[in-house]
């Protein structure tokens, strides 16, 4: 009797594993997707979170590969940098040092599940951690809360979102929002990122390690502050975790473009993200010839 019970349990677990892999391929299709795509034929790379993604492939016209990922934290960028160092000849790195990048919120909202793809055993304290992060957590949908959350959000947004019922799927552009709406959304964003008084220690340490790696590998590291909308800048006031000051303390240059498009809401997707058109325009300015004015 008990043998039959255990046999059935074993078969059921095997089925669960099968279901897990089916789900993994689904997840890979719409979550991991192009996160694993990197072109190693470049020597200059842009590392940023969602502030960098609107620049898309426009950076490549200027021989810079855009290696940004939505929600990338410095820990993710550090993994990517180590990967690049191992696999290609890196000469220059542009890295995002925006006001929020050292936020404890960014520490929590990261891409560690996805960036595990770029790691090897040297990136971990021990083999157990390596196995857990790189394989168990990466491939086991049932153990990865982020994967579950993505499926849940997908279902919620597609099926149970009133605003989408009846075929209404339009999304307001940033410039079409009223001042009050812009302020409200911007304030929510600020509340989300600047709730804590102090920056995240983990993020700060990781940024310092990135600086150290670049120094050891003789890689030119340039800090980058992305354009922000006027409403957001006004509300943000002096709020910042000062990631840029870490770079300046190492005498590294910062390109500060946060005030570049203060009067051009038409280039923004939301309060602090450019849209595709803005990304294209910004890539030209950033990697074009005239950028000396913004260097500090």
């Amino acid at each position: 009797m008990i043998e039959r019970f255990l046999k059935n349990i074993a078969v059921f677990i095997a089925l669960l594993i099968g279901l897990n892999f089916l789900l993994f391929f689904l997840i890979k299709g719409f979550y991991i997707r192009d996160y694993n795509d990197v072109n190693l034929n470049y020597s200059s790379f842009l590392l940023a979170d969602s502030h960098g993604t609107p620049l898309g492939d426009f950076t490549e016209i200027h021989n810079v590969h855009n290696f940004s990922g939505q929600s990338d934290s410095y820990l993710d960028m550090e993994r990517k940098l180590n990967f690049l160092v191992r696999n290609t000849q890196v000469e220059k790195i542009y890295i995002s040092v925006d006001d929020h990048t050292l936020s404890p919120t960014r520490e929590d909202q990261n891409n560690l599940d996805r960036s595990a793809y770029y790691t090897n055993s040297n990136d971990y304290a021990n083999y157990l951690e390596y196995f857990h992060e790189k394989y168990l957590f990466y491939y086991c949908v049932f153990l990865n809360d982020r994967y579950s959350l993505i499926i849940k959000n997908f279902i919620q947004n597609e099926m149970f979102n009133f605003s989408k019922w009846g075929g209404v799927r339009s999304k307001s552009t940033w410039e079409s929002l009223s001042d009050v709406q812009q302020e409200q959304i911007s304030q929510d964003r600020i509340n989300n990122y600047f709730e804590a008084q102090a920056p995240s220690d983990k993020m700060s340490e990781s940024l310092k390690r990135i600086i150290s790696i670049c120094k050891d590998q003789d890689i030119e590291l340039i800090g980058l502050r992305f354009p922000l909308s006027k409403t957001y800048v006004d509300l943000l006031n002096e709020e910042s975790y000062d990631a840029d000051s870490i770079l300046t303390s190492y005498n590294l240059p910062i390109i500060d473009y946060d005030s570049l498009y203060l009067e051009q809401d038409s280039l923004f997707r939301d309060m602090d993200h450019l849209d595709r058109k803005g990304g294209e325009k910004f890539a030209k300015i950033l990697f074009g010839k005239k950028k000396d004015n913004s260097l500090s």
Binding site: L15, L16, L19, V141, F142, D145, S148, I151, K152, I155
Partner: peptide, 13 residues
């Protein structure tokens, strides 16, 4: 399997 899937996706973990 459906119940396990529901726990995984919709469960508050």
């Amino acid at each position: 399997l459906l119940i396990i899937l529901a726990i995984d996706i919709f469960g508050n973990t």
